[in-house]
Deep mutational scan, measured.
Amino acid sequence: MGKSNSKLKPEVVEELTRKTYFTEKEVQQWYKGFIKDCPSGQLDAAGFQKIYKQFFPFGDPTKFATFVFNVFDENKDGRIEFSEFIQALSVTSRGTLDEKLRWAFKLYDLDNDGYITRNEMLDIVDAIYQMVGNTVELPEEENTPEKRVDRIFAMMDKNADGKLTLQEFQEGSKADPSIVQALSLYDGLV
């Protein structure tokens, strides 16, 4: 993909415009910024974590950033290329609610087996709590990752089998306004 070129080839721009919710001009602008920050044309896990640390200076986002990195890194080569970056950004910032929920499901399904187990969710929720640090005051019933996961599973795990399917996750998330709101945070920002 033209590693350190400051412009993408027209056919690449066209393809990314088809695969995302961005215009050709927006794709070019994002590429310019991506190459400025990642001259090699790729972003590794350490660089990704560094970006998260800028956004969450009062907590430790390392663990959460690693989980997000793994979802962005579609081809699992340990690096995020621009096409992976822009497609994930498109879903998280401008995707439909169902697209965002499928993306979030992939984030929580750490072993990619098609289910979110209690332990997988606990890993992610714990990482989120570490990331936000003491900057967020949580209600008593959610002031630990374990309590939050218990509440989520009580609401979403309809067949009580200890794991969530994509359908259970989507339906449960849509029924909880706070989850829908959290997924909409990026709307309109890009």
Rank of each mutant, 00 (worst) to 15 (best):
E137V: 05
N159E: 11
E84K: 15
A104P: 02
K50M: 07
W30R: 04
K9L: 11
T92Y: 07
L8G: 03
S6N: 02
Y52A: 04
V13A: 10
T20H: 14
K7F: 04
A46R: 03
Y186R: 03
F153P: 00
K106G: 11
K3L: 15
S40R: 11
N143Y: 09
D73I: 14
L166M: 01
E81H: 08
S178Y: 05
Y52S: 08
K147N: 06
D187K: 10
P145I: 14
P145Y: 03
Q54S: 02
V125L: 09
E74V: 06
N112I: 03
V180S: 04
K3W: 00
L164F: 11
L138T: 05
Q181G: 12
A154D: 13
N75G: 07
M131W: 01
Q28I: 13
G47L: 12
G162E: 08
F64S: 11
L101T: 12
E120N: 13
Q130H: 06
A104Y: 00
Q42F: 14
V136P: 08
Y21M: 00
L183M: 11
D37W: 06
I80T: 11
E141A: 04
S83A: 04
D109I: 09
V180K: 14
F105C: 09
I116P: 06
I128Y: 15
D126Y: 13
F85I: 12
V125G: 07
V132M: 10
V190G: 06
M156P: 11
S4F: 02
K53E: 08
V132N: 05
I152T: 08
E142R: 01
R151L: 12
D60Y: 10
R151N: 02
V149N: 04
L110Q: 02
I124T: 06
E11T: 14
K32A: 12
E11I: 15
E137D: 07
A154H: 06
E26S: 10
S178D: 14
K100C: 01
S6R: 06
G2E: 01
Q130P: 01
K19E: 14
D157I: 03
A104R: 04
M121T: 13
W103G: 05
K106N: 10
K53F: 10
E140V: 00
K174D: 07
N119F: 08
L138H: 12
I116H: 09
E84C: 10
E84Q: 10
K174E: 15
K163Y: 11
G78T: 05
S93D: 07
K76F: 13
D98K: 09
D37E: 02
E137P: 04
D60Q: 09
G2V: 03
D37Q: 01
M131S: 11
F85H: 10
I152N: 06
E84V: 09
F22A: 00
P57L: 00
L110M: 10
E74R: 13
L101E: 01
